[in-house]
Design a protein around this nucleic acid. Structure first.
Lengths: 209, 209
DNA sequence: GTATGTTTCAAACAGTTGTTTGGAATTGAT
DNA sequence: ATCAATTCCAAACAACTGTTTGAAACATAC
């Protein structure tokens, strides 16, 4: 059993990294199994198919993330409307993100990049899978914002949340490359945590606009 | 010559649509040539390779877009610092976008989706190609913001521009799918133009924060 | 030690990919 | 009408894809 687990998780480790780097279609099972130092057939043996492997990669991430996020939302849901400031709501999203990074190096970037790629899969199984399984936290989030900012219409909140998601996925998912540009043009280097901190006032101001 | 042009542009039309829908790797030349009703070999004859075809698709879009954008930037660059409000700067970006849509249906979504996919290509030729060829407008944009908001540091401006780009690419590129969700959950339907209008105050507030 | 179930592995499978080829069809100029 | 250049096209190419197979290696229990 221990040998199996190491094979499965070695595959997951290699897969999530490669998927984030190159994309799903651009990553072959042979590339994954070579990097994971396991036999090619073991992916189909342990996961069934490449599609299922992709979902398994997401599952591992989303389990950790949504568990923490759900906890944050629960405490927020017991607050009075006046206490629900945008900054506080944003932190409920950011705290679980940051704790991802404490478990594994670079986890935020990988996770955001995977999300971005899943989102880009327009025709795909993945998009449905992610939204079906984890769309309810978005709904809870929407309700919280509605409660804190009752002057905004529900569509305004809906769309602003998506502007926000776009900012986060885009900048955090590509942060290495962006940091390279930033470093080249402005001779400064920011870590992912710094970028997130910079992001909060920007997003909060937008949500309150 | 006229036959050739029609073949070339038929390929470009089919390719840009399919690339935006499914992605570059997920779209085969056979799918493209079938939809374009041309022979398979004509892609390699007219464009050389699939990579070059992808670049050609971008070129056609970016030529129209950057020409208009550059014009907008020029008029802004002759204004006084106090006149450079965030809303005005945003409109300089949005106007060329909207005029894309007047030429071809759905052009904004397609363009944004292509940009998103190019951006996701981390290892790739495309990323370099786009940033190399059109990165200077980003620099001009940064300078304008710096002039209008001198209290912000250069890194703050740099990152906020990227938050902004993320919002735009994410929401406009996926707007059909998002609109579906919006329609299902809130029974409202917004066109791309409406989403953009909704976006301006959000982004402007963030930039000024 | 034998038997049972699980996991690994090399090899092969059928299908798809981008690209190349050499000849046919078409074009435009003289 | 003749010639040269351009464009088209069916067919084939080698390389790569995800998946399956059946036997070998391993582990676990009696």
């Amino acid at each position: 059993m221990t040998k199996t687990e190491s094979t499965k998780s070695r595959i997951l480790d290699a897969a999530e990294q490669l998927f984030a780097e190159r994309g799903f279609a651009e990553t072959s099972l042979r590339t994954i199994t070579t990097r994971a130092r396991v036999n090619l057939a073991s992916v189909n043996y342990h996961f069934g198919s490449k599609k299922s492997l992709i979902q398994a990669v997401f599952d591992r991430f989303l389990q950790d993330f949504t568990k923490e996020l759900s906890l944050e939302l629960m405490t927020l849901e017991q607050l009075e409307p006046v206490q629900l400031e945008a900054e506080k709501l944003l932190n409920a999203l950011i705290k679980p993100l940051l704790s991802l990074n404490s478990r594994r190096d670079n986890a935020i970037s990988i996770f955001m990049r995977l999300l971005g790629r899943a989102y880009a899969e327009t025709q795909g199984h993945l998009r449905r899978y992610v939204t079906d399984k984890y769309g309810h936290v978005l709904v809870r989030f929407t309700h919280l914002f509605q409660k804190g900012y009752p002057s905004l219409t529900i569509d305004q909140i809906f769309w602003r949340l998506h502007y926000m998601l776009g900012s986060m996925i885009f900048t955090l998912g590509g942060s290495e490359a962006l940091r390279q540009i930033s470093q080249a043009d402005f001779n400064r280097d920011l870590g992912v945590e710094d970028v997130i901190k910079e992001m909060v006032p920007f997003l909060a101001a937008g949500m309150k606009a």
